[in-house]
């Protein structure tokens, strides 16, 4: 049976927030801001598509497990098309660099790029805090629903840490 010292050190370590994401190959550079939920229960995102949102209640780049989820608007009426619009072109093996607020750099390699219908995305899997550390970048894409003013799909890029 596993045993641990239950002293005051046996606490969940605070998460170190990411501050920037870049994908040199796709000329993508965004600053990252910690965000929680929007009033409607979705992930809160800055209006400006060149500023991404990190889900601050989930894992971070230095966490021992789980998905670091960073999302940004693909476009905006005010700011035009954003850098994450190019994520859909990421090929497997593309290098993604995440910088944390403490200055540390975390490099990832893209595994998959999915265009997932929004009605079928298992968000508890996307925001999973267990399992091996990974990076999940999210934006919108696919068809646009002109009646609701929303894209019908999410573009979901999953990347694994490089040693």
């Amino acid at each position: 049976m596993p045993r641990i010292d239950a002293g005051a050190g046996n606490q969940v370590a605070p998460t170190v927030p990411p501050s920037a994401v870049s994908v040199a190959e796709l000329d993508v550079t965004v600053t990252v801001r910690p965000e929680g939920l929007a009033p409607d229960g979705s992930m809160a995102l800055p209006e400006d598509p060149s500023v991404a949102s990190w889900y601050r209640f989930g894992s971070g780049p230095a966490s021992e497990s789980g998905a670091t989820v960073i999302a940004a608007h693909v476009d905006s009426l005010e700011y035009d098309i954003g850098p994450f619009a190019r994520l859909v072109k990421a090929a497997p093996g593309t290098i993604v660099t995440v910088t944390s607020v403490d200055g540390s750099e975390h490099r990832y390699t893209v595994d998959t790029v999915e265009i997932a219908d929004k009605t079928g995305v298992p968000w508890d899997t996307v925001f999973d805090r267990s399992g091996s550390p990974r990076l999940v970048l999210i934006t919108c894409g696919g068809e646009f629903d002109y009646e609701t003013g929303h894209y019908r799909s999410n573009v979901i890029v999953t990347a694994t840490p490089l040693p």
């Binding site: 995102l45 693909v74 476009d75 995305v121 002109y146 929303h150 999410n154």
Partner: peptide, 10 residues
């Protein structure tokens, strides 16, 4: 959800 677009530009 992650509603990450509003203009349909792409």
């Amino acid at each position: 959800g992650v509603p990450a677009g509003q203009a349909g530009l792409v």
